[in-house]
Design a protein around this nucleic acid. Structure first.
Lengths: 156, 156
DNA sequence: AAAGATTGAGAGGTCAATCTTA
DNA sequence: TAAGATTGACCTCTCAATCTTT
């Protein structure tokens, strides 16, 4: 364990990875037990639901679903569409593009999933962190996020 | 956005997910650019490397590689073995079991990966968090981890 | 030529069933 | 019968190549 990173920072990193794995695992498990869809479906449906009827282009949606590649999103939307949760149409203004809109069933699913999802956020975050602590956590992680997003680590 | 979770907690949750996605993405990208193996290989090799020669049973190893299922680990170890980085043998004391040991090449790979990995931890954590802040982050996330690990959310 | 999106091929992952030894 | 680990079937994701429109 060299290349000298302070022990505290390393511990924070490891705890970060472990906490994330445990929390996500738990949410997925709760959703599966409740007979609902996986978190990835929620992630993709949520921006569409929030858009309240406005259809999003695949690219716009992709930009908001950060854990999946562009082609991965195409395939996810294939499944969502097959399940009747979203609808695709060719974009009218730029005919290279495709727009996706959530259906009534899609919005219904999002609403059914939220309570289960929320219970797990309660357990993992709300019950163990005060408002002030949550704010501190948010601010520290926002800095990590910004740093991790900053312009390329290793240019091509 | 109902089922009432305070906005601060929700923001913390979202930032948690985004920060994780960004940080991991960055590490994977750096490793790939350097022509090294993915993080999952590091995760599996590290406990074996740390065991300094002692061979671990598949179950022991599985317990320490938290992001992958037992059968997923079998397949990962298949690949690591094919790459000459680990070696499997039937366990002598309990012949149902298998033990895995890291090879010289495996340890060499871990050592070659670490500097690249470390650079990204530096960028995402060390450069933006003081010692004290890292300690605070570690402590808050340790609570999240504990809460997310606590006995079953939804019993079968 | 470049941008938006999809597709083919293949890598990696899971669950449930299986094999072997305890 | 149960525990440790693997396997078979199948699903999801990614990269690189492709198709269409700009």
């Amino acid at each position: 364990v060299s290349t000298e990173i302070a022990e505290t920072h390393l511990d924070a990193w490891r705890t970060f990875l472990n906490a994330h794995a445990a929390a996500i695992e738990r949410v997925e498990q709760a959703l599966a037990t409740a007979g609902l869809a996986p978190l990835s479906w929620y992630d993709a449906l949520w921006p569409l639901h929030r858009a309240r009827g406005r259809k999003l282009r695949m690219g716009e949606l992709s930009a908001q679903v950060v854990t999946i590649s562009r082609s991965g999103l195409t395939r996810l939307v294939d499944r969502l569409e097959a399940a009747g949760l979203v609808q695709r149409e060719p974009s009218t203004d730029d005919r290279r593009g495709t727009v996706v809109g959530i259906t009534r069933e899609g919005s219904a699913l999002i609403r059914r999933m939220w309570p289960t999802y929320a219970v797990e956020i309660e357990r993992s975050f709300v019950e163990v962190l005060s408002q002030e602590e949550a704010a501190v956590l948010r601010d520290l992680l926002a800095r990590v996020h910004a740093a991790a997003t900053a312009s390329d680590p290793v240019p091509a």
